[in-house]
Design a binder for these strands. Structure first.
Lengths: 178, 178
DNA sequence: TAGTTAAGTCAATAATGCTGACCTATATGC
DNA sequence: GCATATAGGTCAGCATTATTGACTTAACTA
């Protein structure tokens, strides 16, 4: 391993950092939006992470619980399409949730190859608890920002996502498209 | 065939999945917001991930480039506070960015223990490219949703984040608080 | 000078993602 | 009935990004 001497990694000292290049208002607004999304998402997920940590679960488990809870009878394929991860990645998460009794599987009625996923009572209770941590934060934010802001919030987020995901959240598409 | 091997991982088959329990309007709205944030964040980050993939970089590198680019002369401590990761996690990412010539470090002028981080020209070019991929998506979303929606979007995201992060994005706090 | 702080580093571990290969069960089209 | 496609599961290995704990060096500060 080539050990760098400290000097190689250092630029000549600058008295003052160079000014941030902001080209126009529009770009500055866009960069602000990057910040906003990063911090809001960071802190929105953190409140649920705290609950998950107690149980030795991760964010991936939360996502699965959330989407199964919202779509009882969801198939594995549909969940994969939503999460955009591989079958092998989901397997680790889902097998644990099934083994621990949070999720139950039932064969499809018409097509018995399907594994329809639902939350058990235990799973519903956990999902509820996770939901409430985020709901409280979100509720405060909604009240603070006001109903008109909430409409705008939803409109922009909706426009940011894929066409398929948009159809899904609008209720006009299937989970497979998300 | 009925002669399938028994599997205690399977619940008894259910004709129809149980209905989703939606307790009141407010909760349904909150659950929708969870969906919106998930999908919007997923697709917002994906556009930059595609650029990063070509260069063998990850999302962690993008985050570092973004915040150094927005805050030239940022210290390592401040970047750690923003990203909320450990020094060891950042080290891997930052050392690569320095070694590859995206980021340069300069000792602090008053306090020479500090490593003031700035983007090199190469780093600025990459950050710009990453930014533009997200700016294009965001620009379309903003135009589609309209200026009033954008205000609401910003207000809710701002309210979702920590007090420190809020001060940071408002420009009234230091990066250390974020 | 003593203690604190900023940063770097080593070692080990965990969560979550990936690819490739292969398997079973079931459905469907001919 | 048979060939093929589809839904799902599994094994093995690997990459990225995070973690904790312990330690070091350099420089600031009381």
């Amino acid at each position: 391993m080539l050990k760098r001497r400290p000097d190689d990694r250092f630029a000549p000292p600058a008295k003052r950092p160079p000014p941030a290049p902001v080209l126009d208002i529009s770009d500055a607004q866009m960069r602000l939006a990057q910040d906003l999304l990063f911090f809001a998402y960071r802190d929105f997920t953190t409140v649920a992470d705290k609950v998950l940590e107690e149980l030795g679960l991760g964010r991936a488990h939360h996502r699965a619980l959330h989407f199964i809870g919202r779509n009882p009878g969801l198939t594995v394929s549909a969940l994969l399409a939503i999460l955009r991860i591989t079958k092998q990645s989901l397997a680790r998460v889902l097998n644990l949730l099934v083994d621990e009794g949070y999720v139950s599987q039932a064969p499809g009625y018409q097509d018995r190859r399907l594994r329809l996923l639902t939350l058990t009572e235990k799973g519903q209770a956990l999902e509820r608890r996770l939901f409430e941590s985020q709901r409280d934060l979100l509720g405060r934010a909604y009240r603070q920002a006001g109903p008109q802001a909430v409409d705008g919030f939803r409109a922009v987020l909706r426009a940011l996502m894929d066409e398929g995901a948009r159809a899904y959240v609008d209720g006009t598409g299937s989970a497979e498209d998300a």
